[in-house]
Design a protein around this nucleic acid. Structure first.
Length: 526
RNA sequence: GGGCGCGUAGCUCAAUUGGCAGAGCAAGGGACUCUUAAUCCCUAGGUUGUAGGUUCGAUUCCUACCGCGCUCACCA
C-alpha cells in the first residue's frame, strides 16, 4: 500500500511538469487524499491527547481481567441480578466499532477475539471519560473499568466509569462488514486479516492446535523432541535445490536445510532411539497451492521398527489430531467429505499406476520402454529425465489427484529413495510409503537404510545423477556415512508436512492460508 | 516461464453501445438515552495499477510493463 502511494506521489511530481496537468495537480495538492486526511485526523487527536498530558502509548496497563473470563462468569446472570449485585470489572481490548445516540454511546471492546460491549451515558459517566472518548478512534486499545449491566436486548455491557488509552491507532481498520477481501492485502498485511476476518483467526488456531496435538501424541509415545541445525555445511535428506548462505567468521558456505533427516538419524545412532523435530525446511523451488519455499516439517525416527511401524504411527496420529483439534474424524475438505479414522487402504505404486494408466512400471523397467509405453497409451511423459522420475510423473499426474481419502502408497523405486532400505523381495524397490489425503502428499516414511555400504553406493549413484545434470540429486555425505558405520539400528522414519495437514484440518484451499506469512513476490520499488 | 482473468475512494463494490466516475462502510460536521452492519441530514474524499496508442472524447478499445488470482509447466 505504501508502495502505491510512493508511486502516486512520484507520478504526480513527474506529470506536473506538463502544463495541461496543472489544475489537477493543484487539486490534488490542496485537497489531499482521503487516507491522508483520515490519518491526519487521528494524528490531530493524538496531539490533542498529548497536549492534555495523556500518554498515548503508556507502559503500564494495570490489572485487568480477560474478557473471556468476564463473559463466562456472567453468562447466566440476567439484568436484575447484575443490577442487584453491581459487578465491577476492569478489562482491556481494542475498540472495534462504535455507535452513538447523542447522550448514550456504545462501543465494542475486543480482546483475543472476544467482545464486550461498553457504554457511556451523559449525566452518569464521569466527564473525564466522555472527554477522552471524544479523542478515541476505532482501532485504539483501551482499558475500561465499570459496572456490568444488561441492555434490553440482553447484551452484557460494561458501563464505563474509568477509561485509559493504552495505544493509539493511526490508521483506519478495513471495512467492518465485508472485512478485508483482497487476497494480496490479506497476506501482505496479515495483522489486518487477523483483526477483521474471523476465518483467519480460526485457521491460525487450527494450525497451532495441530502442532500442539502432534507434540502431545509423540511425547506420549516416548519420543524426545530435539532441535537440529538449520544451517548445514551439506544439505540432504530430500531431493530439492537448497538455499545457500554464508557464515562470515569461518568464511564458510552453508545451506539452509531441506530436511532434518540425516541429523536425526545420527541421534538414533547415538542412542536417542525415539526422536522428533518440528521445524522449518527450505527448498529453493516453485511456489504453488501446496508449496511454499519454507515450510514446517515434522520428522520422527523410531529405532527397532520399520516402515510398517511408521504406518501405524502416522495413521494413529492423524486420527488423533482430528479428534483433538476438531473433535471428530470426518472432515469436510473443500466440499468433499474425508474420513480420517484409520485404517487407511494401501496400494503399491505399481498397482496404482497400472490401474490408472494400464502401464506396469516393473514390466517397463527402463526409461526408454516406460516412455514408449506412456506414449503408446497417449500419455504425456513430460520432461522426466529418468525412469524413476517418469514413474513419479505418471503417479503425480494420474494417481495422486484421485487420492482424496487417506491412502498409503507403498513400494517405491529405489532410484527415488536413496535413503530407504531396499525391499527384501525386489531389489528394485524400497520399503517406503507415502500418505495421501485430499490429493496431496501429507507424509513420507521408510525403513531407514542402515547398511553403510549400500548407502555409499546410493550416494555414488546420486553423484552420477548430479553430474548428468540432476540439480536435485543427493550430495555425498561422508560424515553421515561414518555415523552409519558405527551402526544405525533398524529404524523407521517419518516426515509429515505440517502445513498440508493443517490445510486438511482447517479446510484451507491453499498452503498460504495456513502459513501466517506466505512468501510473496516483493512489492515493486517506487 | 506459458495461457486465462482481474486491478475504480482507506475498505467492499457499481458505472448502458466509448459520452460529466457512483454507492455503502470508514472519515469530518449535525440530530438522536437500549444500539450492536444503529438510523437520519450535510460535507469531504478519485490523474480509474503504470506508460503509450486509437478517438472529438477512454474506467470502457489496442500495445507494453507492474502487481494479484486461477491454471499449466516446475516442484517428494
Amino acid at each position: 500500500m505504501r508502495g502505491r502511494e510512493r508511486r502516486g506521489r512520484a507520478a504526480r511530481r513527474h506529470r506536473s511538469l506538463h502544463p495541461r496537468d496543472a489544475p489537477l495537480a493543484r487539486r490534488a495538492g490542496s485537497g489531499g487524499r482521503m487516507s491522508e486526511a483520515e490519518r491526519a485526523a487521528r494524528r490531530e487527536r493524538l496531539e490533542a491527547l498529548r497536549a492534555r498530558g495523556i500518554d498515548p502509548y503508556p507502559a503500564r496497563v494495570g490489572s485487568v481481567e480477560r474478557i473471556r473470563d468476564v463473559r463466562d462468569r456472567h453468562e447466566g446472570d440476567d439484568a436484575a441480578r447484575l443490577e442487584a449485585s453491581s459487578h465491577r470489572v476492569a478489562v482491556a481490548g481494542r475498540i472495534m466499532s462504535q455507535r452513538s445516540f447523542g447522550k448514550l454511546r456504545f462501543f465494542d471492546l475486543v480482546e483475543d477475539g472476544v467482545k464486550l460491549q461498553v457504554s457511556a451515558r451523559k449525566g452518569e459517566t464521569p466527564d473525564s471519560v466522555l472527554e477522552l472518548l471524544d479523542l478515541l478512534d476505532v482501532g485504539d486499545s483501551v482499558r475500561v473499568e465499570g459496572r456490568l449491566w444488561r441492555t434490553r436486548t440482553g447484551e452484557l455491557t460494561a458501563a464505563a466509569d474509568g477509561l485509559v488509552l493504552l495505544a493509539k491507532s493511526l490508521r483506519p481498520l478495513p471495512e467492518k462488514w465485508h472485512g478485508l477481501q483482497d487476497v494480496e492485502a490479506r497476506f501482505r498485511h496479515r495483522h489486518l486479516d487477523l483483526l477483521v476476518n474471523e476465518s483467519a483467526r480460526r485457521v491460525a488456531f487450527v494450525r497451532s492446535a495441530t502442532v500442539r496435538a502432534i507434540r502431545a501424541f509423540l511425547d506420549a509415545r516416548g519420543f524426545l523432541e530435539v532441535e537440529t541445525p538449520v544451517l548445514q555445511p551439506l544439505y540432504g535428506g530430500a531431493a530439492a535445490r537448497p538455499f545457500v548462505t554464508r557464515l562470515h567468521v569461518f568464511d564458510q558456505e552453508l545451506y539452509l536445510r531441506i530436511s532434518d533427516e540425516l541429523y536425526l538419524k545420527r541421534l538414533v545412532v547415538g542412542g536417542l532411539d525415539r526422536v522428533y523435530e518440528i521445524g522449518r525446511d527450505f527448498r529453493n523451488e516453485g511456489v504453488s497451492r501446496k508449496h511454499n519455499p519454507e515450510f514446517t516439517m515434522l520428522e520422527c525416527y523410531q529405532a527397532y521398527t520399520d516402515y510398517r511401524g511408521m504406518m501405524e504411527l502416522v495413521e494413529s496420529m492423524v486420527e488423533h489430531l482430528a479428534r483433538t483439534v476438531l473433535g471428530h474424524t470426518r472432515v469436510e475438505y473443500q466440499g468433499k467429505a474425508i474420513e480420517l479414522a484409520g485404517p487407511y487402504p494401501r496400494f503399491t505404486l505399481r498397482e496404482a499406476i497400472e490401474q490408472a494408466t494400464g502401464i506396469d512400471i516393473l514390466e517397463c523397467a527402463d526409461f526408454a520402454s516406460l516412455a514408449a509405453a506412456a506414449r503408446a497409451k497417449g500419455l504425456d511423459p513430460g520432461q522426466a529425465p529418468t525412469w524413476g522420475r517418469l514413474v513419479d510423473h505418471l503417479f503425480g499426474e494420474h494417481v495422486e489427484p484421485t487420492l482424496q481419502q487417506p491412502t498409503f502408497m507403498v513400494d517405491y523405486p529405489v532410484e527415488l529413495s536413496p535413503l530407504a532400505k531396499r525391499s527384501a523381495e525386489d531389489p528394485r524397490l524400497v520399503e517406503r510409503f507415502e500418505l495421501f489425503v485430499a490429493g496431496m502428499e501429507i507424509g513420507n516414511a521408510f525403513s531407514e537404510l542402515n547398511d553403510p555400504d549400500d548407502q555409499r553406493a546410493r550416494f555414488v549413484e546420486q553423484r552420477d545423477a548430479a553430474r548428468a545434470g540432476d540439480d536435485e540429486a543427493h550430495p555425498m555425505d561422508e560424515d553421515y556415512l561414518r555415523a552409519l558405520e558405527h551402526g544405525l539400528p533398524p529404524t523407521g522414519g517419518l516426515g509429515v508436512g505440517v502445513g498440508r495437514l493443517a490445510m486438511v484440518l482447517a479446510d484451507a484451499p491453499t498452503l498460504r492460508e495456513v502459513e501466517l506469512f506466505p512468501h510473496l513476490r516483493p512489492e515493486p520499488p517506487q
